[in-house]
């Protein structure tokens, strides 16, 4: 079944691609086979991450960047993530609303994803979906995160170039030197740049960028856009292209992708080990009664954890 779907997808069938995305999204047992089959086709696409707070204009910028890339003859895949309700497990995925001009363009594939309980700004399956779009033959993949605050940094480990979208009200000089999201962007964009405060934020950002230690020799540019009027989009595209060229020339693109693949493997192992452990706990497998003793408070969890890891060495086999 996955073999057939992958074959169909590789001939350009969008429905087959969509079915494979769903399989990856629900973490179906077929995922390893799917990934095995598409891995030889990977590496062609360039992946741009778009992140920033809710309402900053991530979807509109994604839409406009896509339009520009299409004018250049590039095909585009879009992954747009919105949050899953922690209460019901449901979600409203509304990023597409800003992308209507591309609905009938066969060169653009848009997929909305719910975060499904993951807290890093993407869904757990996002990386797998990016791979599918790469294998499908997209030139450019744009990944839009959920609206983020300070520490949702998944996107760095998924994208080649990460763009942080801010608005003039996004904070003062102290916000710009805080740890987290300000450290990870390759490009800063102040959208809605017709509003008051844009010069101040631009100055604060540039100051932060100049005083911080740029270990990779790249000083992220700070751009102003008014995405809904298409102002600044060409410049943004050019800045992304410059960053891409610089990553390729210095060999950092290969290094980044290597690190990302390593992280992905670690994440997968962690997920699967956790699932196994949780199942063992739920099944009431006694672990020589340790679980009960911890529950009762007679044994401390640190000692118990150490002992369980020694006794539970079949986890690793």
């Amino acid at each position: 079944m996955p073999a057939e779907l992958v074959e169909k997808m590789l001939t350009g069938d969008q429905r087959a691609l969509a079915r494979l995305v769903s399989a990856v999204e629900r973490q179906s047992a077929e995922v390893p086979e799917i990934m095995q089959r598409i891995t030889p086709m990977l590496g062609h696409a360039y992946c741009i991450g778009i992140t920033g707070p809710p309402g900053a204009g991530k979807s509109t910028i994604t839409d406009r960047l896509t339009a520009y890339a299409r004018q250049q003859g590039k095909t585009v895949g879009i992954v747009a993530v919105d949050p899953t309700s922690p209460y019901s497990g449901g979600a409203i995925l509304g990023d597409r609303i800003r992308m209507q001009q591309h609905y009938l363009d066969a060169g653009v594939y848009i997929r909305s994803m719910a975060s499904r309980g993951h807290h890093g700004g993407l869904s757990r399956a996002a990386k797998g979906v990016i791979k599918l779009l790469d294998a499908f033959g997209k030139d450019l993949i744009i990944v839009e995160t959920v609206g983020v605050g300070q520490t949702e940094l998944d996107i760095v480990a998924a994208a080649d170039t990460t763009v942080l979208i801010l608005v003039p009200e996004s904070g003062d000089a102290i916000q710009t030197i805080k740890a987290g999201i300000m450290e990870i962007a390759d490009l800063f964009v102040i959208n809605k740049a017709d509003r008051d405060g844009v010069e101040r934020l631009q100055r604060d950002l540039q100051m932060m960028l100049h005083i911080r230690h740029a270990s990779d020799g790249w000083c992220p540019p700070v751009l102003g856009t008014q995405a809904h009027k298409d102002i600044g989009i060409v410049e943004l595209h050019e800045a992304i292209t410059t960053h891409r060229r610089k990553l390729s020339e210095t060999g950092q693109l290969a290094t980044r992708r290597q690190q990302n693949r390593r992280q992905e493997l670690l994440d997968l192992l962690q997920q699967q080990l956790m699932a196994t452990l949780t199942a063992q706990f739920d099944d009431g497998e006694a672990h020589s009664g340790l679980l009960e003793q911890v529950e009762e408070g007679t044994v401390d969890p640190y000692t118990a954890a150490q002992q369980m890891l020694v006794e539970n060495d079949d986890l690793w086999r």
Binding site: T84, L93, I97
Partner: peptide, 15 residues
């Protein structure tokens, strides 16, 4: 869309 969300369903709204 909201009622479906509250029922645990993923809703894509296209405008």
């Amino acid at each position: 869309a909201l009622a479906l969300r509250d029922a645990g369903i993923e809703v894509i709204y296209t405008g």
